[in-house]
Amino acid sequence: MTKALVRARAILRTGLDDRGLTRIETIRSDPPLTLRQTAPGEVHLVSTGAGPLGGDHLRLDVEVAEGTSLTVRSIASTLVLPGAGRSLMEIHVYVASGATLVFAPEPTVLAAGCDHRMTTAVTLAADASLFWREEIVFGRHGERPGRCHSRFDATAGGRPLLRQEFVVGDPEADGSPAVFGTARCVGSTLITTETPAEGPKSEPREAEVAEGVAVLPLAGPGTLVSALAADAVELRKRLSWGESRVSVQAGSPARATVGLRPPASRFP
């Protein structure tokens, strides 16, 4: 690998236009992180160039302004490759009051020999809405993955909502029936929900579980769909099922469903 180490920082910000509709206020690409607006309030990440490669340090900042809605997707999966040292992808997100963010890129695929670090920090205002999907594929077809350590932190209204780390390629955890079992992919979708109303009348939100997927109401105002699967297609199918269950459970409140509809799956 003779490629120079990449430092990139892309920025995405929304604002309200004169009619009170969402417009993309700032869309700053920094290759290989390239952003393209594909519809009103919708942006696709278009990777220009391979990677990240070992040694690359990529950062994406997303700020969803009060009362606006933003959807972020990607054109293709991200293939993490080995290189000179560790690659880093960090994402910093702020979703303001009354704003909605749907973040649903294609999976991150860990190629053999990679050494990748992902950190995501999501700060939600108390009544912000979020749909955040993250999928990690352990190696290309028939390939043993390199190493990856991801950390996701979300706070809502200043309180911790979800903090979770995944370590792939750690001999202590790989293949453990307690961690990933025989799965080759792990994925999760965090969906904010109404704060459970206080009082005896509020129905406790029930967890649901099916083959390789669980719908897990969090202690705070959110539900996590957590899935394991043998391949990316099965993983997406399981997550989509769980995501649909959250919409069902959320019932009528517009906030929980409208604008948070899972993005159309690329897979049947």
Binding site: R163, Q164, A178, A183, E208, V209, A214, L216, S226, A227
Partner: peptide, 20 residues
């Protein structure tokens, strides 16, 4: 806020299945 947060999706699935 920075304490380790290592998740174990299989344990989550097992715990929920166990209750059922």
């Amino acid at each position: 806020s920075a304490l380790p947060a290592h998740a174990a999706p299989a344990l989550d699935l097992l715990a929920e299945q166990h209750l059922r």
